[in-house]
Computed example of a mutant assay.
Amino acid sequence: MPDRIAAHYERHAHAFDEARRKRFVERGWLDRLLLAVPAGGRILDLGCGAAEPIGRYLIDKGLRVTGVDQSETMIALSRTRFPRHDWIRADMRSFVPAYRYDAVLAWDSMFHLRHEEQAALVTQVAAWLAPGGAFLFNSGPARGVAIGCQFGEEIYHASLAPLEYRAIFEELGLLELGFAPDDAATGGRSVWLVRKEH
């Protein structure tokens, strides 16, 4: 099921983009993330979609954005909207960055990966972050798999347990800045914010 996620978003790219531009529930968390980012800093957005509303918000803040997404249509929309930034069609699991980043986010994206793939991606992100850089992502509130429905199709979500994420953070030198399980302000998402200490 996770390997069908890319095809799902490509099929529904325009419908997703239209719906996505109408809601911006993550703004408060983005503002917290940006506290760790210097002026003009570099941000990596994993699962960037068509760069609305997150990409636009970050660009309007004067930041340099690299977006990664598997949907060719959504990457093309991002390039059309913000041609001065970097939009890369790639799988976040195999992406090779050209820079170290001041912040990385995986909003509504990393939770489409299997448990072991999420653990591996957190490890990769820690290596991609500059010292003091921050990582913002979503999970579920507990370990498990959930099959949701989007555009009339089943869509896979998975989560490690909070203790499992925290064990990975400790091993990698990531300091937990915030965790909100079932955060009502974001429509019930569980949200993590961590920072690389060194």
Score class of each variant (00 low, 15 high):
residue 3 D to G: 05
residue 5 I to H: 09
residue 5 I to P: 00
residue 8 H to M: 11
residue 9 Y to W: 14
residue 11 R to F: 02
residue 12 H to R: 10
residue 12 H to T: 03
residue 14 H to V: 10
residue 15 A to S: 12
residue 16 F to Y: 15
residue 16 F to R: 05
residue 17 D to S: 15
residue 19 A to V: 07
residue 22 K to A: 14
residue 23 R to I: 12
residue 23 R to H: 15
residue 23 R to F: 11
residue 25 V to N: 11
residue 27 R to P: 07
residue 28 G to I: 05
residue 30 L to Y: 04
residue 30 L to A: 07
residue 37 V to M: 00
residue 37 V to S: 00
residue 37 V to A: 00
residue 40 G to H: 12
residue 41 G to D: 07
residue 42 R to D: 05
residue 43 I to A: 03
residue 44 L to H: 06
residue 44 L to S: 05
residue 49 G to D: 03
residue 55 G to A: 03
residue 56 R to Y: 01
residue 57 Y to E: 10
residue 57 Y to L: 07
residue 57 Y to V: 06
residue 58 L to E: 01
residue 59 I to R: 06
residue 62 G to M: 10
residue 66 T to Y: 01
residue 68 V to K: 00
residue 73 T to K: 09
residue 74 M to V: 01
residue 74 M to T: 00
residue 76 A to G: 14
residue 76 A to Q: 10
residue 76 A to H: 06
residue 78 S to Q: 02
residue 78 S to T: 01
residue 84 R to F: 06
residue 89 R to C: 05
residue 90 A to D: 14
residue 94 S to N: 11
residue 96 V to Y: 03
residue 97 P to D: 03
residue 97 P to W: 01
residue 97 P to S: 08
residue 98 A to L: 11
residue 98 A to S: 13
residue 100 R to Y: 05
residue 100 R to T: 10
residue 100 R to C: 10
residue 101 Y to M: 03
residue 103 A to R: 09
residue 103 A to L: 10
residue 105 L to A: 04
residue 106 A to E: 04
residue 107 W to S: 02
residue 108 D to T: 11
residue 108 D to F: 10
residue 110 M to N: 07
residue 110 M to L: 15
residue 111 F to P: 06
residue 111 F to I: 13
residue 111 F to N: 15
residue 113 L to I: 04
residue 113 L to K: 07
residue 114 R to E: 15
residue 115 H to R: 14
residue 115 H to I: 08
residue 116 E to K: 13
residue 116 E to N: 13
residue 116 E to R: 14
residue 119 A to N: 09
residue 120 A to F: 02
residue 121 L to F: 04
residue 122 V to G: 02
residue 122 V to M: 08
residue 128 W to R: 04
residue 131 P to R: 08
residue 132 G to V: 05
residue 133 G to K: 03
residue 134 A to N: 06
residue 135 F to N: 01
residue 137 F to A: 01
residue 140 G to C: 07
residue 140 G to F: 02
residue 141 P to F: 02
residue 142 A to E: 15
residue 144 G to E: 05
residue 146 A to Y: 13
residue 146 A to C: 07
residue 147 I to N: 12
residue 148 G to N: 10
residue 150 Q to E: 12
residue 151 F to V: 04
residue 153 E to H: 04
residue 155 I to R: 12
residue 157 H to T: 10
residue 157 H to N: 12
residue 157 H to S: 13
residue 158 A to I: 02
residue 160 L to K: 07
residue 163 L to A: 15
residue 164 E to D: 14
residue 168 I to H: 10
residue 171 E to A: 14
residue 171 E to C: 08
residue 172 L to T: 05
residue 173 G to W: 01
residue 173 G to K: 06
residue 175 L to R: 15
residue 175 L to Y: 10
residue 179 F to C: 09
residue 180 A to F: 10
residue 180 A to H: 12
residue 181 P to F: 04
residue 182 D to P: 09
residue 182 D to T: 13
residue 184 A to N: 09
residue 184 A to L: 13
residue 184 A to P: 13
residue 184 A to C: 07
residue 185 A to G: 08
residue 186 T to E: 06
residue 189 R to T: 06
residue 190 S to I: 00
residue 194 V to W: 00
residue 195 R to S: 03
residue 195 R to D: 02
residue 197 E to T: 15
residue 198 H to D: 12
